[in-house]
């Protein structure tokens, strides 16, 4: 356990040191990775801890991002704290409503239904006036962080934005850790390992699933908000199923049910993407092949790699 904490502290230090290296490119790249890490962690609550495999998590991301784009005044910077709260609330509410429908279905059904609902949101923002059409919306001003005239930081500066996202990542991690230690977290894990038993024990399983879906959605919205604030642009592709597929991919790459897995996966995903994009414009071909090879030969993701490389430890005379 102590070694794990040490590794965590070291990685945090490493992350905090990235902007000190002075490369604007890597500072912004790692900012993007950390935003994706928040997104992947939020999905981990659903997939890794509750056992609900969603292929529509992009819906919450998109709603979080679009909230900033739609509520921000056109010629003034938006208030960061206010719009951030609104984005989380909007994504949470949307997830609550969608959740009422989807938590009723099980297994692979869940994956199909969440995908379909995400596609519905894609349609709403792509084809109706509500989302201002298929070209998307640009956000001209970075959200303003001032509180009563005092400005703690300026998101317009890449380094400030970097540390802001890092703090959000750490807070999200801490929040999920606390949540998982609470009775709710234990119930969710119980549902993952044996839903029927939890039901017989008298737990309102559907309500717990709905809570998990809503919280995961709200956090996903937070990630979406960060991406809109960082890149200053939203479009309907945020709801696209590639977005949902990629975040699930990150999670599986990094390993399910460990929270840090989402962070590792986000880094691995972006690293692979950058690597293949540098090689060819048809980068999805080697990327897809890499995924296929990985899943054929390394079930359990990158997280299972250390355990596989370690020689098997003999455990008494009857080790298997």
């Amino acid at each position: 356990m102590n070694r794990k904490r040490l590794a965590l502290a070291l990685s945090l230090l490493l992350l905090a040191a990235v902007p000190l290296a002075g490369s604007a490119y890597y500072t912004e790249l790692v900012t993007k990775v950390m935003i994706l890490a928040v997104f992947a962690m939020s999905l981990d609550l659903l997939v890794g801890y509750t056992g609900l495999v969603s292929l529509g998590h992009a819906a919450s991301y998109g709603i979080g991002a679009y909230t900033l784009a739609l509520v921000a005044p056109r010629y003034d910077p938006a208030n960061l704290w206010l719009t951030l709260g609104e984005a989380v609330l909007a994504a949470g509410l949307a997830s609550l409503v969608v959740g009422i429908f989807v938590v009723r279905v099980k297994g692979v059904y869940f994956l199909m239904v969440t995908l379909a609902f995400a596609q519905m949101f894609h349609f709403v923002f792509h084809d109706t006036d509500f989302g201002r059409g298929s070209d998307g919306v640009s956000i001209s001003f970075k959200p303003d962080a001032s509180i009563r005239g005092f400005t703690p930081f300026d998101l317009g500066k890449p380094v400030h934005a970097y540390y802001f996202v890092l703090v959000v990542l750490v807070l999200s991690y801490g929040f999920l850790r606390l949540l998982l230690r609470s009775p709710l977290g234990h119930a969710l894990r119980g549902i993952k390992s044996n839903e029927h038993r939890m039901q017989s024990l008298g737990f309102p399983v559907l309500r717990y699933k709905l809570a998990s879906f809503t919280i995961a959605g709200a956090l996903g919205g937070l990630a979406g908000y960060l991406s809109a604030a960082q890149f200053g642009f939203v479009n309907p592709e945020l709801f696209g199923w590639h977005q949902s597929g990629n975040v699930l991919l990150m999670l599986i790459l990094g390993g399910l049910g460990s929270l840090t897995g989402g962070v590792v996966g986000a880094f691995a995903f972006v690293a692979l993407q950058e690597l293949f994009q540098a090689l060819t414009i048809h980068w999805q071909l080697p990327f897809g092949l890499a995924i296929i090879l990985l899943v054929v030969f390394l079930p359990g993701g990158l997280a299972s790699l250390p355990a596989r490389l370690r020689p098997p430890r003999p455990e008494g005379p009857f080790h298997v």
Binding site: V47, V53, L55, G107, V108, L111, G245, L248, L249, I252, L256, H282, Q284, L285, F287, G288, L289, A290, I291, I292, L294, V295, V296, P299
Partner: peptide, 24 residues
Amino acid sequence: KRDHLEQVLLTYGLILVFEELRSL
């Protein structure tokens, strides 16, 4: 006999490959 999640990953990889081959 493998997990549905791994099937999802496999077939997601296949989609990327097919789409990119089509584009190539």
